[in-house]
Design a binder for these strands. Structure first.
Length: 661
DNA sequence: CCGCCTCGAGTTCT
DNA sequence: CTCGAGGCGG
């Protein structure tokens, strides 16, 4: 399909803006300079051809286009290659195995270094005298940053006893974390934009037009390789020793070993330790130490085969807020969500990030168009940490009306949240139905986000009972639904009628009644009718049910609309009773058990059920009251907490043994 | 009344 | 996973 010139121009501007962002802000370009130039030229040509679409905010109109005029290009004597990246032990084992095979030696010597987040730089010494310093650029050609590099104290200008001729020393220019904080404080006081991270700050400092500014930035440098020249050392570690004699600094974190296991252990331990170091690291670099062996391994087109970067998944990412929209939850709470330019963070692509509420927006000062920093550290949920650069113009205001049903929103005096109070608001109905069908509740197979959306949108479903009046023809009219899928969903609905009362209670979505409380109530009252007719006093006699929960349950069942729903559900043949609790044994009587990590061949819910069948209580969090924690592989913070509190930890095997299995 | 132990609710992506 | 808040023991 052909695009109109206007569309093509808009697309190119967006793309170039993106690559500028990668290049300037993240210092991590996707395109080579040539590829970038092609895009840029194409846009310029189109804008010349169609001047009616020329705009002042086009990247072609902005000062300081990407090709930096003030830094001359420098061709590297030997290309500056990048390293192959790996993010897990498997990849590193594979790398080690391949090296061992080519070298015909499984105990070759390796060197481990910290991979410091900075800018790589190549220093050319002629007869021991520093002549040129160049940034990496596209690997073949970089920018001449000699004037600025001369201002870095860590870099010697002269190497005593260096070999004659050309010697290219390579390393990383970086900034310590505390120096970034100080620099940003200064930037703020001078009304200048702050740097998102140490890497950007180092890159920005190196690209200063005035080297006096660079001199004021406490940049540091460590050697990590050489590019060209006669190096007499037989190994990388000896080469580094020579460099240190010349006055260079080596990587502050080092390990020399021939044991892969030792390296893997170091990686695991370093994951935590690196946070306490003065500089930012995103991983480790493993190199084959012996130069003769390095030569045997050689290079691929892109990277040396004798080295590999062993990275930790990035936990922070910088991106742009494209849009802020308001989502309405099943309870009517309106939550602002930032839609961002998709960005990779901790191994996944993030495109949405919650802003929680409007206090949070005000606190962060987020606007549409701003550059923000996202984090996903140890957590699953992306979080907006701060605004890196204010580019947006308009403040984000709370919505006057519900984005789903258009009714005016409601805000309680002393609460942060805004609510939609219309019970027939489509967004709320969708939320309630989705919760009803979800795995922990009625577990209706074939009923996902998209299906619920369409069922409500089409007016087929407004409440729980409507679900059971759906017929084959309703479903066939849904998008992508044919006989097979329709029948599966009908089967799923039929199957859900058999769920125990505890599931149904949870599915109804009574305020303050979650999975746990539902179970306790169902076990105590056995039938829905007994629960419906219970007084608040009777309800409060149930453990863990106090004034708030009992009132909420009582109110729910005395609402005429809810009662009508329940009668309709009764007519469709839903199970309203709770089966007697199965007791297999009492070996775990009086114990409180917490499960963590992924068990093989069993979900956590199943494991918890098993423990309860043997008389245990189960919980989701570790405390001093926990009898023991069952930790499977990939256990996280709960295991850590158990260690801190001195709670006993069992492997899944030990746990099964306890049950006599 | 305070502090600890839990639970509920919202949230993202594969 | 985290935050906020209900339940409850001291």
């Amino acid at each position: 399909m052909a695009f109109s010139p206007a569309e093509e121009i808009a697309r190119l501007r967006k793309e170039i803006d993106f690559h500028n962002h990668r290049y300037y802000d993240l210092d991590d370009p996707v395109l080579s300079d040539t590829q970038y130039d092609q895009l840029y030229q194409k846009l310029k040509e189109l804008e010349a051809q169609y001047p009616q679409y020329a705009q002042t905010d086009s990247p072609t109109q902005k000062i300081g286009g990407r090709a930096s005029a003030s830094f001359a290009p420098v061709r590297h004597a030997a290309p500056m290659m990048s390293l192959d990246n790996s993010y897990n032990e498997e990849d590193v084992r594979a790398w080690h195995e391949r090296c061992a095979k080519i070298l015909n030696d499984s105990s070759f010597d390796m060197v481990l270094e910290a991979k410091i987040d900075g800018v790589s730089c190549s220093l050319s010494y002629t007869d021991g005298q520093l002549t040129t310093a160049a940034s990496r650029g596209d690997g073949k050609t970089g920018e001449d940053v000699t004037a600025n590099v001369l201002a870095i104290k860590d870099i010697p200008h002269h190497l005593d006893g260096a070999p004659k001729g050309l010697l290219e020393i390579r390393g990383e220019i970086y900034l310590d974390k505390k120096d970034l904080a100080a620099l940003n404080a200064k930037q703020t006081s001078q009304n200048q934009p702050v740097f998102a991270n140490t890497r950007n700050a180092a890159a920005g400092s190196l690209r200063q037009k005035d080297s006096a500014v660079t001199a004021q930035r406490p940049l540091k440098f460590f050697v990590h390789s050489f590019g060209f020249g006669e190096v007499t050392a037989p190994s990388f570690s000896r080469f580094i020793q020579n460099c240190v004699c010349w006055g260079f600094t080596a990587s502050p974190v080092r390990l020399q070993t021939s044991s892969l296991e030792e390296i893997l252990k170091f990686y695991r331990d370093f994951a935590e330790q690196r946070r306490n170091l003065p500089f930012d690291t995103d991983g480790l670099v493993i190199k084959v130490n012996n130069f003769a062996q390095q030569r045997i391994l050689g290079n691929t087109a892109k990277s040396p085969r004798w080295a590999i970067a062993f990275k930790y998944p990035a936990e922070q990412a910088t991106t742009t807020v494209n849009h802020i929209l308001f989502s309405v939850g099943r309870s009517g709470v309106i939550t602002p969500v930032a839609q961002v330019e998709p960005v990779s963070c901790a191994g996944v692509i993030i495109s949405n990030a919650t802003l929680h509420n409007f206090d949070e927006i005000r606190r962060l000062g987020v606007r549409v168009g701003d550059k923000i920093i996202l984090e996903r550290a140890g957590e699953v949920i992306p979080k907006v940490i701060k605004v890196a650069e204010h580019l947006g113009k308009e403040d984000v205001l709370p919505p006057q009306t519900c984005p789903s049903c258009g009714r005016p929103v409601y805000k309680a005096e002393d609460e942060v949240g805004y609510y939609c109070v219309n019970p027939s608001c489509p967004a709320q109905i969708k939320g309630r139905i989705l919760h009803y069908a979800s795995r922990g509740a009625m577990d209706i197979e074939g009923m996902g986000d998209a299906v619920v959306d369409e069922l409500v949108e089409r007016g087929f479903v407004n409440n729980f009972a409507d679900l059971y009046n759906l017929n084959f023809f309703h479903l066939l009219s849904l998008e992508n639904f044919k006989e097979k899928k329709s029948q599966n969903l009908l089967d799923g609905l039929e199957e859900s009628k058999k769920r125990p009362l505890s599931r149904l209670l949870f599915a109804l979505g009574i305020a303050f009644v979650g999975a746990k409380t539902s179970e306790v109530l169902a076990d105590r009252f056995h039938t829905l009718d007994d629960l419906m007719n219970a007084s608040t006093e009777t309800l409060q006699s149930v453990p863990d049910v106090g004034a708030v929960v009992s009132q909420s349950v009582y109110d729910f069942f005395h609402d005429p609309a809810a009662r009508e729903q329940i009668e309709l559900l009764r007519q469709t043949g839903l199970n309203f009773t709770q089966p007697e609790k199965q007791i297999s044994s009492r070996v775990l009587e009086g114990k409180t058990v917490v499960f963590t990590g992924e068990m093989e061949g069993m979900t956590r819910t199943q494991a918890e059920q098993l423990a309860r069948e043997h008389g245990a209580k189960t919980s989701g969090s570790v405390s001093a009251k926990t009898s023991f924690v069952v930790a499977a592989k990939a256990a996280g913070s709960k295991l850590k907490k158990a260690n801190e509190l001195g709670v006993k930890i069992l492997t899944p095997e030990e746990f099964f043994h306890l049950l006599g299995r």
